[in-house]
């Protein structure tokens, strides 16, 4: 432990990654985690910081196709990585139905947890779609909501699973 060392800003590191399909290069302090990188360097403020130590899930984003805690990943670890945020998967239309179900079901109040919750729910829909409420609760257990009590969130996700399933049955795109 050496206080003068600890206070010294570390040399910047240059990192290039793809964010929502766009290649970006920035020089950042090594201690910059992905969410500060997205919010402060790229003005992508949809990803939120709640606890900032990996517990609450508000910072959930995708790296190379899988959801991660954005506050537990350093920007400098992501050289060459592909990052997708709530802005990206909203614009692509991937979760339009899920977002509409969230509105219909009142699955948000203050909305702070919602981007992370949607990223998590999108992963559930993609990897293990099931309308089983226990399975949904289990999968979103790492994302905290302090307003809704989760019931409406589970409703919205279950409804989207069912809707996609019946659309598929009718030969729809989903």
């Amino acid at each position: 432990m050496n206080d003068s060392m600890a206070a010294r800003p570390a040399p910047l590191v240059t990192v290039t990654m793809t964010v929502n399909g766009r290649s970006v290069t920035r020089s950042v302090e090594p201690r910059t985690h992905l969410i500060d990188f997205l919010r402060n360097e790229l003005d992508l403020t949809g990803s939120h910081l709640g606890c900032e130590h990996g517990v609450c899930g508000a910072c959930t984003v995708r790296v190379d196709g899988d959801i991660v805690r954005g506050c537990l990943v350093l920007a400098v670890q992501l050289e060459g990585a592909r990052v997708e945020t709530i802005e990206g998967i909203s614009a692509s239309g991937e979760i339009t139905d899920l977002q509409e179900a969230f509105v219909r079901r009142n699955a948000l109040q203050c909305g702070y947890c919602t981007p992370g919750m949607l990223m998590c729910a999108a992963e559930f829909l993609r990897t293990r779609p099931s309308a089983d409420r226990e399975a949904i609760r289990d999968f979103i257990s790492g994302n905290y909501c302090r307003c809704t009590g989760y019931h409406a969130i589970v409703d919205a996700i279950a409804e989207t699973v069912e809707a996609r399933r019946s659309a598929k049955g009718r030969g729809g795109h989903r």
Binding site: A6, A10, V13, E29, R31, E52, V76, Q77
Partner: peptide, 10 residues
């Protein structure tokens, strides 16, 4: 909270 500064080597 934010991390204290550190150097980084890949």
């Amino acid at each position: 909270m934010k991390f204290a500064p550190f150097d980084y080597v890949c």
